[in-house]
Nucleic acid binder design. Structure first.
Length: 432
RNA sequence: UCCGGCCUAGCUCAACCGGUAGAGCAUCCGGCUGUUAACCGGAGGGUUGGGGGUUCGAGUCCCUCGGCCGGAGCCA
């Protein structure tokens, strides 16, 4: 008898197989047990009939508790009554372990605090199984997209000196004799260095923000994909973003359809995500918001509710571009026609999922960059190597950062970002 | 940091104006040959988050501490 994974059972109909997994639910009557099995690749029901097996086997099944680890032997049978299309007629099974306590996660609903406290076990539940499979496909698609366009992966450091956009939300750690180091909040500056060496580059890794943000869209540790391309200007950059997001959504729809169905995601909304995406300027966005009754004027930043109001106007991600200079980061390139705005864009996901990408063309002029660093009261010394990039063969270049968990939450249709990552780190939770 | 809210059985929740703390699930025992969060009968299970106060009497009102949830600002 050969060991087979549940996802492969359809190719083994009529065969005797072995399944190594766990009991995630059990129903029984006096003469029949229904054992719900999972093995990490899927879920399947095993049927154990009293009349067809030894009395001892049938009696042993009564001892099984939820999340017992068991190896099951039986014949695969096609069954229209089963959601997966197949069932196993169990002939025998071997208990690997009976849980020493009752499994804490029950069949009825639980509160979020309880579930987050049991995240290490909650991962076994069906919804989490589907979400994290979708996440896996999304990550794969992101990497494929860059590979197909011959981008070079440049892993940027996680420990950094005091360099980044703003110092207020950095996590500090002790770093030997050097004193303080910080956990990265963006790899952008390093990617800017790399794009001058490799042309087209991207990174993908964890990012840390010590923001005291307590909302459904924030984590203190999240995964970000950033890209940076030499000789790319604003328009090239926006095109790249919509190509990336479309590719990721379409590939995920193709490969994770059953998971999205299981999550009851309305996939018709995702099917529409293809280039070109609607674009509106910051000026137009302000006018739109004023028309909708928001108390907002030119120069104000656009908050969460306002983002939702804008994205509600469209059935695809929308790119809001060219924000006022004073509400954006120091390194963004001013619009040559209108120096009060910068060449940047935020991509807002539909259905109120908020900002998934922040992007800009970067300043490539040495003197202008120095001016901006001073204007923002940032220490020039900290940017010595970054300024070097403008001294030696500087060219226009552009890039962006995409928040993975927000993309996962959007594609899966989750209410909260904390289920989009295996072990969420939030303001008040670092356990388990 | 600021503004709201919640904390009652292992879990999810109920308990009117302050008057003997209750249900479903889970657990244990029994029943059931096709169950899909299976169902049916029975049983056990509580210092109502900690501390203090008001009251004849507090799950309920007040103070305080703690934990958590939602949101704002900021961001991906």
């Amino acid at each position: 008898m050969s060991w087979v994974y549940i996802e492969e059972l359809k190719d083994h109909i009529g065969e005797d197989v072995e399944i190594r997994g766990w009991l995630y639910n059990k129903r029984s009557s006096g003469k029949i047990h229904f054992l719900q099995l999972r093995d990490g690749t899927g879920f399947v029901q095993g049927v154990l009939e009293k009349s067809k097996v030894d009395e001892k086997i049938f009696e042993d099944a009564k001892r099984l508790k939820l999340e017992s680890s068991i190896i099951v032997y039986g014949k695969v049978r096609e069954d229209s009554r089963a959601p997966s299309g197949v069932e196993i007629d169990i002939s025998d099974f071997k208990i690997v372990q009976i849980p020493v306590d009752d499994y804490p996660i029950g069949k009825k609903e639980h509160g979020i605090d309880f579930l987050m406290e049991h995240r290490h076990l909650w991962l076994r539940s069906k919804k989490q199984f589907h979400i994290l499979h979708v996440r896996h496909e999304i990550i794969k698609a992101i990497r494929e997209f860059y590979d197909s366009r011959r981008f070079v992966l440049i892993d940027t450091p996680i420990f950094t000196g005091a360099i980044g956009e703003s110092a207020g939300n950095l996590f500090q750690v002790d770093y030997f004799d050097y004193g303080k180091a910080y956990l990265t909040q963006t790899g952008q500056l390093y990617l800017e260095a790399a794009c001058m060496a490799f042309g087209r580059v991207y990174n993908f890794g964890p990012t840390f923000r010590a923001e005291k943000s307590k909302t459904r869209r924030h984590l203190t540790e999240f995964w970000m994909n950033e890209a940076e391309v030499a000789y790319y200007e604003h328009e090239d950059n926006m095109k790249l973003q919509e190509d990336l997001v479309s590719y990721v959504v379409q590939k995920t729809l193709e490969r994770a359809e059953k998971h999205l169905m299981a999550l009851e995601r309305d996939t018709s909304k995702l099917e529409k995500v293809e280039p070109p995406f609607p674009r509106i300027s910051y000026d137009e966005a302000i006018k739109l918001l004023q028309k909708k009754g928001f108390d907002i004027k030119w120069g104000d930043d656009i908050g969460g509710d306002e983002e939702t109001a804008i994205s509600d106007e469209f059935n695809k991600p929308v790119m809001v571009y060219n924000y006022p200079r004073h509400i954006k980061a120091f390194y963004m390139q001013p619009d040559p026609q209108r120096p009060e705005v910068v060449l940047c864009d935020d991509m807002l996901a539909p259905e109120g999922y908020g900002e998934i990408i922040g992007a800009s063309q970067r300043i490539h002029d040495y003197n202008l960059l120095i001016e901006r660093i001073k204007e923002n009261n940032l220490p020039l010394e900290a940017y010595d190597w970054y300024l070097d990039l403008r001294k030696y063969g500087s060219v226009p270049h552009s890039g962006f950062g995409m928040g993975l968990e927000r993309v996962v939450a959007w594609i899966c249709g989750l209410k909260h970002i904390r289920e989009a990552i295996p072990f969420a780190r939030t303001l008040y939770r670092i356990h388990p």
